[in-house]
Design a protein around this nucleic acid. Sequence first.
DNA 1: CGTTATGTTGATAGCCGTCAACATACGTGG
DNA 2: CCACGTATGTTGACGGCTATCAACATAACG
Lengths: 242, 242
Amino acid sequence: MQTGVPGPAPMRCDVCAIRHRAVCGALSGEELGMMNAISRQRVLQPGEPILSAGDPISWFGNIVTGAVKLTKLLSDGRQQIVGLQFPPDFLGRAFKERSPYFAEAATEVELCIFPKPAFEKILKEKPDLEFRLFQDTLDELDAARDWMLLLGRKTAAEKVASFLHLIARRSPMIGCAHHNGGDEIRFQMPLNRSEIADYLGLTIETVSRQIGRLKSDGVLQLHATREFSILDMDRLAAVSGE
Amino acid sequence: MQTGVPGPAPMRCDVCAIRHRAVCGALSGEELGMMNAISRQRVLQPGEPILSAGDPISWFGNIVTGAVKLTKLLSDGRQQIVGLQFPPDFLGRAFKERSPYFAEAATEVELCIFPKPAFEKILKEKPDLEFRLFQDTLDELDAARDWMLLLGRKTAAEKVASFLHLIARRSPMIGCAHHNGGDEIRFQMPLNRSEIADYLGLTIETVSRQIGRLKSDGVLQLHATREFSILDMDRLAAVSGE
DNA sequence: CGTTATGTTGATAGCCGTCAACATACGTGG
DNA sequence: CCACGTATGTTGACGGCTATCAACATAACG
């Protein structure tokens, strides 16, 4: 049980839900003790900023629960979400002084954070940790390229379907899945309509209309604005283009 | 001087144009000898395929000269260029059995290639090399996210201006810059109109029209369809959105 | 010089953005 | 608990940007 008091707690890592899936999975017992010593828990509310573009980076972190969005802005305010991260993703741009994007809590978020210098020291001493981060970065790059295909070439209908398919598939890992006995996939949407639009390069109105169309087509059901049930996963996949 | 005969040539690396800027820059003399021993030169013609999505990856490479495009396809043939690589970029998806994208020569390309197993062996033994690749991957991820902003939120005019600005800025490094005495930036476009369209998420007609508009606005001049001079770099930057 | 690939320009259509009105959910304080 | 205000989401009408279709021009190449 945790104390609720911030600061290092003895062997907090032992009960950590993402212990093995996060980058920490690359560390052995002793090394984990070092991480435990320098790490702290932090809870963020929806909309709370984590990093601002151009900000000096002073710490890194793992997402324990919740969803974090990475955004970029044009000077006139147009916005694009360039990354959406969930447990057990690593947060922060290593080896760079300043963040190239904004990071913001989309839902309530629990982070396990560690100071940049201390983490970079461990990184230098533990090649396995660096290797793990490298792997994760390669996977992120693959995901970014998949998204470039979506942004550049898919229609609004395909974009929305692709996004819902993505969230539905990953909902158990994300921690937003709801089960109601049947085998339909039910989850709570971690983003509001405006954020979905910013992720897909669309407007809120178009997102709303496309969700409405999928609803009237019987592909999904809305229990509340953010409570989705996918009734026909195959059809959702078919509509998503690929 | 090279012999033209494929296969390892004694100390080819010593005269390599990208020796210090490529990942090889992380290697010392002895290690470079190992790379030299396993590497071969390969020349590709424009349009020649390098990797197909889903293909088993059997080798990696550095781009010595030319431009390589990474593309992804939807099942109905829609295409998106998800990466554009120039000297001294590294080519290939490390730690994955199969390529997540197609790679194809855009111009004539000189590669320095090495077998995957041999390279991965050196990678395991030389943390500096892995670190260098990691850095490059992080930079690629940053670039991919910049492009996501362009694809999702920029207008056709801004997309074309951004792209021309990118090529103009990097033309010296890319090796397509032409100097004609004055300080105007002149270069040979490494992509044809269709490829530019696939990079920007547009059609060839829209690309052509936007280039035409920049021409009649006095921002640039066309000496041939692929010979550009940027007359007003500041205005090009201004039109590109950011 | 003919043939094909590449690029340009014009006319038209449609998808999606914009503007606007309305609906619903949420929170706060009376 | 209800009244009110605000934030979020939906729906409709309309317009503009960009895709599509088509014709033509230019370049590349044998």
